[in-house]
Amino acid sequence: MDRFNEQKDRIQQVLTDFQDGRRSNVAIVSEPFYGDGILLDQIEEMVYPRSIRLKASGLADGWPPETDKSIVIVQDLHHLYLRRIGGFEKINRFLDGISTSSDLFIITCNSFSWKYLDRVCNIKRLFPVVLELPSLTSSQIRDLLLSEYREDELNFEVAETPPGEKPCPVRLSKKEVLIKPLGKRFYRPSLEIQVRDVRDILPCIGKKVEMSSPRDLVFEKLARMSGGNPGVVEVLWRGAMEYPNVRADMLKEDSSGVDLDYDHSFILSIILSMGIIRRDGLAQIAGPVDEALYVLKDRGLITRDGDSCSIRMESFKKVVDHLKRNRLVS
């Protein structure tokens, strides 16, 4: 399944226009972990051999080396700035260079950084085509994940009640019905009532009634827990998979909020906006950060790999919700 067809069509149009002498630089904007590198690989194949692909973190002075290539692909543009006084030199040089260059620029950028940079540097003015990679719906997630498996290869198990909890005596579910003459299957709603004790009903009050097939339930849960981010979906999916069984109860939805003070939340917002950032870079932005990093890691919000920090993928949605609620990202 190719989930980037729409974006590739738009790029193709931009390339055609470029050949005709009309240049429209392209920004591909997505959340961290989205997997925009896959799209970039495909674009690179489309424009080969006219292009050069560079990582923004490798541009020492903020501008690509001179080449004879007419299409410049820059990955992770957000690594060209740091949110501190004097931290915009590289990105300003890059933007100045774009405005005087005749090459076509295709860049990728973290969506949270993109919004910030647009307000601070008015970056959109130099990128007439902005492709914002959308969140996936549960059906898109299903198509994406199941494309690697044969029909009926996986067995979806739904133990909706966590161990130690009594099952709800009133349940609304879907039953699969096969219509033999038509050879088609469909789902009909089914109400199951097994009330032995009135007290059993109490824990169920206020719980959302699920009315999905086991398979749909898994993908709906994945969509909710990941916020539609494909990278996060993959991680959660692997956690729920005990081949060939997929267990919905392994997808544990964390309804607890994030309780952080403002300074720690700010550092979290920087980590989210940069995708991955080294400790010394964070320290340049926010001063001493060791205590904050300890707290964030301790609460399961970030992971540390040596000197680098990034958001823990399983907590991605929780972190984004917290930061949006507090208006630290938009």
């Binding site: 949110r83 501190r84 006084i85 931290g87 915009f88 307000r119 601070v120 300074d263 926010a286 208006r327």
Partner: peptide, 11 residues
């Protein structure tokens, strides 16, 4: 730059 990089700014 001091304003836009402040942790308290809203733009």
């Amino acid at each position: 730059e001091a304003i836009v990089t402040s942790r308290y700014v809203y733009i």
